[in-house]
């Protein structure tokens, strides 16, 4: 199972996304990482090129709702249904909002690596 970890927007904080990358690799996932400051279009391009099963976006600057709406738009435009997640500084009140927009789940800072891995593993089984 292949995961694309992505950093959309201008925020350059990548400690968390790299920690998750290590955790996923240790749990047997294949991980592709976009690097910093990618547009949503670039992220979706990479997801299709690499044929990933899941997309995870890490956003810490507070722009998660703006970027999630854009993600939904691009996924719809291209008629893709790869499950996508948001992690980072996400206020609790925005988690439902993100799900309404189209995110499969949101993992706010403080989420445990093991919990994210378990969640992704569950997707693997149902897929």
């Amino acid at each position: 199972m292949k995961v694309l970890l992505a950093k959309p927007g201008l925020d350059g904080h990548d400690v968390g996304v790299k920690v998750l990358a290590h955790g996923l690799i240790e749990a047997g996932f294949k991980v592709v990482y976009t690097g910093l400051r990618k547009t949503i279009e670039e992220i979706v391009d990479m997801a299709t090129e690499n044929k990933v099963d899941i997309i995870g976006m890490s956003i810490l600057s507070g722009t998660h709702l703006v970027l999630a709406k854009k993600m939904k738009e691009v996924m719809d435009e291209r008629k893709l249904n790869i499950p996508w997640f948001v992690g980072g500084n996400i206020p609790a009140k925005d988690i439902d909002e993100l799900k309404k927009i189209g995110a499969a789940q949101a993992f706010p800072t403080g989420s445990k690596v093991m919990d994210v891995v378990a969640y992704f593993n569950a997707i693997k089984i149902t897929a």
Binding site: V15, K18, V19, H22, G23
Partner: peptide
Amino acid sequence: VSKQAYVREMGMQ
């Protein structure tokens, strides 16, 4: 640096 961040974070978790 990122390898160490992982070790530290897992140590905490």
